[in-house]
Amino acid sequence: MNSALLVNIFRFIMLLAIQIVIFNNMNFLGYISPFPYILYIILYPVNSNRSGLIISSFLLGLTMDMFCNSGGIHATACVILAYYRPYIFKFSFGLSYEYQTIKLNESLTPERFSFILVSVLLHHIILFILEAFQFKFIWDILLRTLFSTIFTIIISIIIIYLIKPNKR
């Protein structure tokens, strides 16, 4: 229990740090920027405290907003993703997901991939809609969402493989 909490706090800080130091400075073609910091929400233990996840996601998003000068768009997207995470689990793994011990950082099955895809897509579309805040940018929003999603997923999978615990 305690070690899980420590792992989560460590993940929270590390993901924020690499997001701010490295990935916030990446702009491919001027509008493609990855947001792998949401791995914190994706990798949060399945059966852990749900309100803890929602509060910590809010803090995660708020910190990002502070560093990006963006009002509350990251906080909104993160809170929505955190709240709807169980539904995405149900969508990807079927009804009985609660009784399985799902560990996302094991080998990449189609279910795990679809879970990551839907989560990232949900987060990014909310993020970019709130960022533009105007309907005349609808193509811009969709384009940014599409490319950033692809990019975030690639980087997230690389990170998951890098932090995979050693097999004993």
Binding site: G61, L62, G71, G72, V79, I80, Y83, L130, F133
Partner: peptide, 13 residues
């Protein structure tokens, strides 16, 4: 929390 963050977003816009 959604209300707080949406208020911050709208306020900043």
């Amino acid at each position: 929390l959604l209300g707080i963050s949406l208020a911050l977003t709208i306020q900043s816009h």
